[in-house]
Amino acid sequence: MGRAVRDEIAPYPLFMSHGAGCMVTDVDTNEYLDLNNDQDGHAHRALAGAVVTQVWAGGALGAPSELVAKHAAVLRERAPSMEVVRYAGSSAEATLMALRTARGFTGRRLIATTEGSTHHLRHSTIYGSLADVVVLPFDDLATTTALLRRHAPNLAAAVVEPVLPESGCLSGEPDHLRELRRLTAELGILLIFDESRTFRLGPPQTTFGINPDLTVVGDSVAGGLSMGGFGGRTDVVRKYELDRPGPWQHALTDFGKLSQPSGGSLGPADLRT
């Protein structure tokens, strides 16, 4: 269901009762085709079974676990650029942490993003201030190159969605994204792929043969449950490890939750319907 259908129907939005597969039913028993269908289908038996089993074994143990390690291994297998993985409560939080990580690593303040990207927060909270944002035109390589070179001394990161899910599902030209990878590496700018909505599609970075410095993932890697994460270069992400001098802080109120990774660890064969 699109945002307009969910939230903007006068005089009140549709209220749903339940879903199964690609169908949802409202409180008046009307059925609708849901093209989003909760990532892998509503009430997917394999997902529901995995989550219920894990909840009975403990839903939030507050410590590292074998399940989380296995889930991170799945992410690294699908996107080898995610050498080290850290988890968050949502994709918005993961994006925020990735940007903070880039700023801390580079010592720079500005963030570049592309037109049409959402990155889950539409206001300045995620960037610190809108004055800290450089907006790049989508798939205009010449203008993008000029802007990145102009602001390079102050640019910490360029964060892009390789496919724009809320702008008609437009895909960036692979050659343009590869050139963006080359250019950001030359200028010392961290390239962040926001794959919170696209990781389940391949992910695109693997399909295009591009290794960003950091990658953001979201609920598509948790069977549709609320979860986020970011990962990337070892030298960047391991700044948080406690055995390092002056480790960076990354505290979570829901650290060690296991129900989300239990769903996300299922392989394609488990989810085939």
Rank of each mutant, 00 (worst) to 15 (best):
159 V>S: 02
17 S>Q: 13
257 K>N: 12
23 M>C: 10
245 P>R: 10
182 R>F: 03
158 A>F: 09
161 E>V: 02
148 L>Y: 01
135 V>S: 01
213 D>T: 02
105 F>W: 14
83 E>M: 07
187 L>H: 07
4 A>W: 10
86 R>P: 06
123 H>G: 09
42 H>R: 03
37 N>R: 14
219 D>P: 04
86 R>E: 11
129 S>N: 12
73 A>K: 15
145 T>S: 12
101 T>N: 07
153 P>D: 05
103 R>L: 07
25 T>P: 00
247 P>F: 11
81 S>F: 11
265 S>P: 00
39 Q>C: 14
198 T>S: 14
34 D>L: 03
92 A>Y: 08
257 K>F: 15
74 V>T: 13
52 V>S: 07
52 V>N: 06
222 A>Q: 04
126 I>P: 00
175 D>P: 00
139 D>P: 01
84 V>I: 14
263 G>Q: 03
110 L>P: 03
70 K>Q: 14
248 W>C: 07
206 T>A: 09
254 D>S: 13
248 W>Y: 11
127 Y>P: 02
121 L>V: 13
193 F>W: 10
272 R>D: 10
61 L>C: 09
159 V>M: 15
167 S>W: 04
27 V>H: 04
150 R>T: 11
142 A>E: 09
145 T>D: 06
11 P>E: 02
170 L>E: 08
180 L>W: 02
164 L>Y: 00
151 H>W: 15
257 K>H: 14
